[in-house]
Design a binder for these strands. Sequence first.
DNA 1: CGCTCCGTTGAAGAGAATCAATGAGCGTGG
DNA 2: CCACGCTCATTGATTCTCTTCAACGGAGCG
Lengths: 239, 239
Amino acid sequence: MHENGVSANAAGCELCLVRRRAICHALSAEELTALAARGRRRSIARGQTLLWEGDDALVVATVLEGMLKLSASTGDGREQIVGIVYPSDFIGRPFGQRASHSVTALTDARLCLFTRPEFDAFARDHPELEHDLLERALHELDRARGLMLLLGRMTAEERIATLLLEMAQRFAGKGSEDGTDRFELPIDRRQMADILGLTVETVSRQLGRLRGIGLIDLPSRRGIVINDRGALAAIAAAA
Amino acid sequence: MHENGVSANAAGCELCLVRRRAICHALSAEELTALAARGRRRSIARGQTLLWEGDDALVVATVLEGMLKLSASTGDGREQIVGIVYPSDFIGRPFGQRASHSVTALTDARLCLFTRPEFDAFARDHPELEHDLLERALHELDRARGLMLLLGRMTAEERIATLLLEMAQRFAGKGSEDGTDRFELPIDRRQMADILGLTVETVSRQLGRLRGIGLIDLPSRRGIVINDRGALAAIAAAA
DNA sequence: CGCTCCGTTGAAGAGAATCAATGAGCGTGG
DNA sequence: CCACGCTCATTGATTCTCTTCAACGGAGCG
């Protein structure tokens, strides 16, 4: 357990990779400077947990690079991933004492970190920022509820198809017109299972099945080739 | 299909049942008048749907009386309830074109209704209102994610125990100290199943099982008596 | 009084979990 | 450079939970 790269933050925001997509885009240059003065850049290693479910929600952050998972778990260790966050996404729980879920790095990641009390105070003084947070929260709520349908009512095959299509949409280079997509999964089978509410074995078997009927190829451990996006979408079939 | 009781709204807000708990509590008397001028009281009968998943999100509302469900469904009709709303809760999707889920009355209900464009515009001019919406959205997000754990990782028995405890917390009169609670379920078995991602038969069987081992009684169709809250909590067991 | 809706219960079956073994890929260290 | 050990993915056999299909009885309501 190292203390990881924590560095002071000047006005490097203008060069920031996510300047235009993160919450910061709601702020003027002047306001941005004020916010930046409260922020810290921090690196976090793959596998490290930033916030623990149930603990005090001490910090919030914008993701600069990397991917993190939000997860909840039962008393006996069963885990459910309740969200994945990407660069420019916001993490943490403003205006609340406790973290309702854990936040763990899926890849090495860099964050722009704020202490929650400081961030809360700043947000309350900046309506445009709160509006942006609101839009993000509403969007996440829509996504979470979509996943509830998947977890509550879809078969293993449908869940897999849905996940592949979503991953393709995010990671494949706009796919060719013939319905083909090729990309690298950013997560392993265990994490796929934890997102979909399945076991690794079931994930593996269903992927094998889809490969068997020619809808996808699995050229490598993380590699996915979608041969027939239409057929996959037909399986995902959720209205 | 009747056109239901739609009536103009004066400044009856002061008498409003949910004045102090709904979004309105964030507004001054003056602002409240301005908002009220844009609102309409509307009754909606049990079973009626206010918003359809995928349709334009034309309205938002505060619930004055009654309960409504938020639901999503697959192409072939499987349904998942993704949320239940109670008096003083806010429904609808501000700042978004499409409703991501349907909103249907579980009981006869009364709403304080706004057209979405009007509400959006008003909200943008009133940061305190947006802050309240943000807090509500964040809270709903926490709840939705908790349900994702239930749907993805819990057994039927655990789901039932969790639901009973939550319902008891909301509807039972603070229960006696010996761990007993008595209340009427506001929903039928089908709706319980749609919340928990199960079938009605499984819900019925699990309730029967819990009754069999003495943890609960089922004095009537909707009636629930919790005999041993501790044991139920031990089953719910999610951290 | 009959009808429909709802809840319960039973029997059978399917889908996913569990238990278990094997093998591929990868980083480490000899 | 290769051997070792680890993690991760796959596959098989079996088990079990939950679903599906079906029938029945009671409560409420026209």
